[in-house]
Design a protein around this nucleic acid. Structure first.
Lengths: 206, 206
DNA sequence: AGCAATTTATACTCGTGAGTCTAAATTTAT
DNA sequence: ATAAATTTAGACTCACGAGTATAAATTGCT
């Protein structure tokens, strides 16, 4: 057993509670007491596991970004099974990425990162490298493969990948009114369809 | 004279200081004492003019968003003088919007809005209506005119406007590493060029 | 059962920062 | 010049929340 400090189930409960409370209130407004209460745990237990509020926050951010990266890469992997219509595959990937982008955990992550710029500016860099950069690079690689195979006409796959995600995230950001409105699934599908439609006009598939 | 409360120059100094301190520290971390000091003013003067911290913050956000809207609309107005090459005009507008997006005041606005989601969620809606929505609508109108004149092939001008801004803001957001890095002017020009290049491939100009 | 680690409840300290108050100083208007 | 309004410095109150301390209760282990 590798239970270094305290019971694992308590730790997980605290972390889950930290997600939701930090996401709801932001770092400063969040009270450690609330997190403990939401986890069904005494305040001292939180401190036993994580030392202080800042450490707990950093750990929560790291966990969230790891999860976000995993989800994004899984979705991008769908492009490998693009035997038939490339546009159809792009639509699937687009919808998947859009859903990732709209996921509660993802929204929370973005919000929290911009909430305390001075104190946690280093986290921004870490998350940028671990998520955004990885995602566009991986997507760029897939597009490069498809380009080599003559399935899509792309000069700069890296740029195309960047613009593909932009065509998704931009409309999502504005339609969600900066996160204050939940975009229904139907609308999300429409956004993905429009993004891919424009994308394949600019980068024709064959 | 309509000096309802206090001296106007003091009020302006306080507001200017509020911009920079809120932008640097975020709402919670910002101390009213710091704002007063930065304005070269006594703390009581701040309270005399704005009542409390929250009112000062809301006023700052409102002012920032008004300024942002004005700037954006001025840039979009450049499209009216598109006698010759449309693509060239789009590049000018693209660069202008990119600069607006990167302006300190604009970055501060975005950061501050996402910083306190619970307490100021109403502001998000207001700013959304007053800036983002207005900008895409106005740009959409311009594109519709150009489409009617047969200068560009666009089915849904509103969608095209949304995607035009997305092709700008997306890359800017990631290249700036979520605001932690300043994008040099040269790179900004490249982003605008790439955005317009892709845009006109998808929506051909004549 | 019995021992060690962990959790819990509760009460506590302590720093911080919002907002107030007061009396003196300064500005503006007439 | 003088009265009214405003600003200033500084001390002050007060609420809040992070983190600690303690002793009892619970859990896990052998």
């Amino acid at each position: 057993m590798e239970t270094r400090r305290g019971r694992l189930d308590k730790r997980q409960a605290v972390m889950a509670a930290a997600f939701s409370v930090f996401a709801r209130d932001g770092y400063d407004q969040a009270r450690v007491e609330d997190i403990a209460a939401a986890a069904g745990v005494a305040k001292a237990t939180v401190y036993n596991h994580f030392g202080d509020k800042e450490t707990l926050f950093r750990q929560a951010i790291t966990d969230l970004s790891d999860a976000a990266l995993t989800n994004n890469l899984r979705v991008i992997g769908l492009l490998d099974e693009a035997r038939e219509d490339i546009a159809a595959a792009l639509r699937r990937v687009g919808l998947g990425l859009a859903e990732c982008y709209c996921a509660d955990s993802s929204r929370a992550l973005r919000r929290l990162l911009s909430s305390e710029p001075e104190q946690f500016s280093d986290l921004l860099g870490v998350v940028y490298d671990r998520v955004s950069r990885q995602v566009t690079r991986t997507l760029g690689d897939k597009l490069a493969r498809l380009a080599l195979a003559g399935r899509i006409r792309v000069d700069d796959p890296q740029l195309a990948a960047e613009q593909f995600t932009a065509l998704l995230s931009g409309p999502i950001e504005s339609r969600s009114r900066f996160g204050t409105r939940t975009i229904p699934r139907t609308e999300l599908r429409g956004i993905a369809r429009d993004a891919v439609s424009t994308f394949v006009k600019a980068f024709p598939t064959t």
